[in-house]
Structures are given as structure tokens and as C-alpha cells.
């Protein structure tokens, strides 16, 4: 069976859930090979990738790979495409994942499909476009299929693979080293689940009113074991850090449940949450467009409703 390359997403050696989803998808398309780029590879990481089906694990853990923007990762994958002749390559549809896929497409003269929400036989990709308004099926017609897949597109299922490790040295060109990362600034993350991976997301918007009042949103999120999101109005106002912005220029989330409090539902916000399975909206304006999407909506003041909901959730635990 031909190999299907999966680029591993990890932060400080911790593998992201989306990688396990990609391995699960890859198993249906061929023999999954995980490609690990950058430092932090550990036996625990190897075990995890193997548990979810990796037959091979290619490891390029030189510091250099992550010292420069995107190009080295694309070079690493291109090298594997040349040596392993895979049937396709799967990358997480994060902002950076898409950039890696784009450069890889040029290096390997192959087509790239971004933001797939599913992959059928023969690497036929399913996409949801125009803010969820149109469903599209597309395929790569030249070269090997390079597909970026949105987090939460499938449920990760363990099914152990062979897990054979192979070290890879990536030869970087001067062009690969043209944009150097000189500092990484990590902003608070906290103990909540990762926004793009969470099963439940509770988001606050301008209606929350202040940075302090975001604690109302956080308390509900914590009661539900959810991630916290924010609209652009809230991140622009400095009430919540930008990496929690949901929408066209923030994160795209597809949780089981999305709760929007004090968010009007502008098209740019909808672009990031429209594919949530269940949507609950809390807004004092009955005309707010978010209610068009809501499975359940409450017209009223979020400062009354959200704390009451939090209390009810705690009670039922």
C-alpha cells in the first residue's frame, strides 16, 4: 500500500489532536507515515503516532527546521515526496499548515486543496465554502494530492501501526533560511482546551462590555470544559487576546457546540463558526443575525443569562 504522508502538528513536543485525526483519515487512503519536523521528538510522541496508525515516522528534529519561517518544513516534505513516492500528503488546515502545503505544491508540481472537511476514496476532498453556503467536492488533477484538512473533521480512532522510525537530514538552501525567527512570544494559554480542537466553545463579543467581564464567559466555559473564543470587536478592544479570535481572520472552529454571547453574527465571524454542529446564541437584540444560525437562542442580557446558565450547569454535574 502506498504511503500517505501526514505532517505532525506539535507544540513543545506535544502532539495536537488534529494530527491524530489526519492519521485516522490517512489509514483509509493508504499506509500512514507521520512526518515530524523540528525539535521535541520523544519516545512518548512516537508511541502516540504509532497508536493512531503510523506505519512509519520520519523525524527531522534539527533546530534549524523551525528556526526559519515555513520553507524548511516544505523542503522536508518535498524530500520525503521524492524518496517515498507517497499517494498523497495531508496537512492540518491551520494558517501555517496551509502555507507549508502551498510551498510544497510548487516544489512537487502538485495540486493543493485547502480547508477540506472530509476526504473520500481517491483523495476526493469535501469542502464547505462561502461561509457554509455551498458544499464542494474537488480533486487534485496534476501531481500528488496535497490536502489541508480542518481540525475536528473526523473523530480520531486508535489503530496501531508499525511505527518504524527513520531519521531524516534536511538540506536547507539559502532561500529556505531567508526569514529567520528571532523570538517566539507565547501569550497565556491557561488550562482550557485548545480553541480549534475543543468540543465546546463559548465565545464573547462586544456585548460582554469589558476585559473584566470576560470572566463571565470563562466561568461558563470552565463549567462546560470548553474553550473560550472572542469576536474581533472583543479582541480589537483588548478584552481578550487575539489568538482566541474566531472568524475569517481568526480561528475556524467546528465544535459540537458553539455558544455565542453578545456577538451580532457578522459574516466575518460566521465564516469561522458556521459549521459548528449546534449553535446557541445569547443576545439582547432580537434582530441580531446570529439568531438565523442558532438552534437555540435567548433574547436578553447576557450578564443575567450566562451566570444563571453556569449555575445550572454546575448543579447538573
Amino acid at each position: 500500500m502506498a504511503e500517505v504522508l501526514v505532517l505532525v502538528e506539535h507544540v513543545d513536543g506535544e502532539i495536537k489532536k488534529v494530527t491524530l485525526e489526519l492519521l485516522t483519515l490517512a489509514r483509509r487512503l493508504g499506509s500512514p507515515s507521520a512526518a515530524w519536523a523540528g525539535p521535541g521528538f520523544t519516545p512518548a510522541a512516537a508511541a502516540k503516532l504509532t497508536e493512531y496508525g503510523a506505519d512509519k515516522i520520519y523525524v527531522a528534529d534539527a533546530e534549524e527546521i523551525t528556526d526559519y519561517v515555513v520553507a524548511p518544513k516544505a523542503g522536508f516534505l518535498a524530500q520525503l515526496v521524492a524518496s517515498a513516492a507517497p499517494a498523497g500528503v495531508l496537512v492540518a488546515a491551520t494558517a501555517e499548515g496551509k502555507e507549508v502545503a502551498g510551498r510544497l505544491a510548487i516544489k512537487t508540481d502538485s495540486g493543493v486543496i485547502t480547508d477540506a472537511v472530509g476526504i473520500a476514496d481517491g483523495f476526493a476532498a469535501e469542502q464547505s465554502i462561502f461561509g457554509g453556503g455551498v458544499n464542494v467536492r474537488s480533486r487534485v488533477s496534476r501531481g500528488i494530492p496535497i490536502i489541508t484538512v480542518r481540525p475536528n473533521s473526523t473523530t480520531p480512532e486508535p489503530s496501531p501501526g508499525a511505527g518504524a522510525e527513520e531519521r531524516v537530514t534536511v538540506a536547507l538552501s539559502d532561500a529556505d533560511k531567508a526569514a529567520k525567527v528571532v523570538e517566539r512570544v507565547k501569550q497565556e494559554k491557561g488550562a482550557r482546551p485548545e480553541l480549534t480542537e475543543a468540543a465546546i466553545v463559548v465565545s464573547g463579543g462586544r456585548g460582554v462590555g469589558s476585559a473584566e467581564n470576560f470572566s463571565v464567559i470563562e466561568k461558563l466555559a470552565d463549567a462546560l470544559g470548553a474553550a473560550v473564543g472572542a469576536s474581533r470587536a472583543a479582541t480589537d478592544a483588548g478584552w481578550y487576546p487575539h489568538q482566541f479570535q474566531v472568524g475569517q481572520t481568526g480561528k475556524t472552529v467546528a465544535p459540537q457546540l458553539y455558544i455565542a454571547a453578545g456577538i451580532s453574527g457578522a459574516i466575518q465571524h460566521r465564516a469561522g463558526m458556521q459549521t459548528a454542529k449546534t449553535i446557541v446564541a445569547i443576545n439582547k437584540d432580537p434582530e441580531a443575525p446570529i439568531f438565523e444560525l442558532a438552534d437555540f437562542g435567548i433574547v436578553g442580557d447576557l450578564h443575567q443569562i450566562v451566570p444563571q446558565l453556569t449555575e445550572e450547569v454546575e448543579k447538573r454535574k
Partner: peptide
């Protein structure tokens, strides 16, 4: 802009 904050790049 990154998932965790931002990178300074030169």
C-alpha cells in the same frame, strides 16, 4: 501571528 501568540521574524 501564531497559534500561541506571535513570532518576531527578520
Amino acid at each position: 501571528v501564531t497559534d500561541y501568540g506571535y513570532d518576531k521574524v527578520t
